[in-house]
Design a protein around this nucleic acid. Structure first.
Lengths: 347, 347
DNA sequence: TCGGGTGGTGGGAGCGCTTCCACACTTACG
DNA sequence: CGTAAGTGTGGAAGCGCTCCCACCACCCGA
């Protein structure tokens, strides 16, 4: 009795192996493997037998065993060097995540989330990437000090950055929008509207999107022969935008135009403007950046620069797939999307 | 020449193995393994030698090989049966993700993201879980129709639900807040304030948080001998809340109190109320739910029910760790946090 | 009739690791 | 001084899979 029970429990504990499938199907392990995978050079008869055995046993290949010999893990890291609520609450991240996940999921690749602040966690993350736990990496929201692009380029891991990396931009793949052109277009819209005292709430100076959009603003201001001194940096959050707008109003009370580097910050700025009794767009015209849904629901609805975030995420995933497929060293590739101005009521 | 180059390239391609470490350290592979892992019964001398060899070679254990024999993968799935932007943009999810990631990260467990809509993707997800790609699962935002709790309970995978599951609640572990008590407290606050025509924007009827909070509202209304017919369901998004509030105002123009099942929906409701010219709280008092930062920044600031989401996430991760540690069958455990009312200006 | 394909197959060698087991070699105790 | 109970150690057996290679039919053209 005891013996039988032991056998039973053992049997129910351990999952079926390829050996058992082969035995049930009446073929060798090699043939079973071939039938289950690519299925090259396997007779229809064997194939059917194996398929039936797989179904009967509820067999599923052991990923660790497979990975040990193929040297692939069929999983990809999503690296977010900023484990803060705000990254996740940002629709930019949400949209990116969904796009990436969709493309990779279609290829049965899993997404491993690597959230890391600076310091020890970063070391853990790099170690993880180096150990070849994963086949490749997609990096979102990368900051200047993390030197992530250098590290990844050096370790030769297939990877794609969402947003131009600070360094090694000629060695790693990335997707981006033309943030200079976008910042420029936003500002020009204000200029054409007749604004003469235009300020900007820029993004963080340690992110390329932050400095590029600011640069675009500067170029437009210079070209219009307007003073480019009304600059405050925000952190891409609503609260940050609100505080930045307050500061800007304090330092430059004559403000009549405001280019904001993200819609979330613009939302905060709108609130600050309302509290200060400034009408939008009559007293102060406002242009945002991103156009991920938030902009449609502000009051007034935001004129903003549309960044094709969904497309960027798609392409990022595809660039990674390319690198994984051709198996060669990671390649430097870049895809840069043109931004476009979406006119609504705020400017 | 060629020979040497070949050797070189091979060496640089393939990472160092335990064998090499052992050879360099002058010990056997078994001793090296022991030194690297638990380090039981290894002399200090061997331990030092191995450590030095590891450093010199830049050795890191091959996770697949280890996993093959230990039958652990040291990674955990985060299951989100709703691959929509709105889940990620929701601060509830962001906070949960961060909490879970922090606790698991401290134990060197990786988080694999499993985003699944209904249908084919769900099958893929279940297959993935069943194949023991991972050691356990944490399920967030679970809906009635996905029967996830039944599936997971049946396959005997260690798992924890964030938010009470619909079924098998006595078979799987979960963390939650007492949503009935919370809905009740929110409504009582309105009653005590003198509101007599109180409506509610409930959560989705296919989520336990939705129905429980609604039930709490119903109980409070009945106890106050008020009519409980002013109910509209929302989807936990801002836009959904706005639409729901509009409908509620249309159907019940005499509304003087509003209990909303999430702050994000309450934010939308506030906008609808403002557009309808109702002052908050004078004409209509509003109570939200969640208190994850949004509530402080609305105008007026939201009186809301505080749900300790960070703590819930922590505990969810810990419950999972417990199950992983004691190695036994998954256990049914539950931790339910009491909600608390936070009074601000909106009620 | 025979060499030379060609489609299909199974044996077997690993992938890199953990861990059981047997074997020294010490130390402590009766 | 023999025995028992530790300590450390290395040999070797796998974990479950893929894939190389040898092999066997069989059919073809010469």
């Amino acid at each position: 009795m005891t013996r039988v029970m032991d056998d039973d429990s053992v049997r129910s504990e351990s999952l079926p192996t390829l050996d058992e499938v082969a035995r049930v199907a009446g073929v060798s392990r090699a043939t079973a493997s071939r039938a289950i995978n690519g299925g090259d050079k396997v007779s229809q008869k064997s194939r059917d037998a194996v398929e039936a055995a797989v179904l009967a046993l509820g067999y599923a290949p052991n990923p660790a065993a497979r990975s040990l010999v193929t040297r692939r893990t069929d999983s990809v890291a999503l690296v977010v060097p900023e484990p803060d609520d705000r990254v996740f609450s940002d629709p930019f991240f949400a949209r990116t995540l969904r796009g990436v996940s969709r493309v990779l999921g279609a290829r049965d690749l899993q997404l491993v989330l690597l959230l890391t602040g600076p310091g020890k966690e970063e070391q853990r993350m790099l170690r993880y990437l180096r150990n070849r736990h994963i086949d490749g990496a997609i990096v979102v929201s990368h900051h200047r000090e993390d030197h992530l692009s250098d590290h990844l380029a050096a370790m030769g891991l297939p990877c794609v950055f969402v947003g131009r990396p600070w360094t090694s931009a000629d060695k790693v793949a990335y997707v981006d929008t033309d943030n200079i052109a976008g910042g420029n277009a936003a500002t020009e819209a204000l200029v054409q509207r007749g604004c003469r005292r235009i300020g900007t709430i820029a993004g963080p100076p340690d992110m390329t999107a932050g400095v590029d959009r600011l640069l675009g603003w500067r170029m437009a201001m210079l070209q219009a022969r307007l003073s480019d001194d009304a600059v405050v940096h925000g952190d891409f959050t609503e609260a940050g935008g609100e505080a930045a707008a307050e500061q800007l109003l304090r330092e430059h009370p004559d403000l009549d135009g405001l280019a904001v580097a993200s819609d979330l910050m613009a939302l905060g700025a709108l609130r600050a403007l309302a509290r200060a009794g400034r009408r939008v767009p009559d007293d102060v015209a406002v242009v945002g950046y991103d156009d991920l849904g938030v902009a449609e629901r502000t009051s007034p609805p935001l004129t903003t620069v549309h960044a094709p975030v969904g497309d960027m995420a798609d392409q990022a995933a595809r660039l990674l797939l390319e690198q994984l497929d051709d198996g060669s060293r990671p390649r430097a590739m870049r895809i840069v999307f043109p931004p476009s101005l979406v006119r609504r009521a705020s400017a």
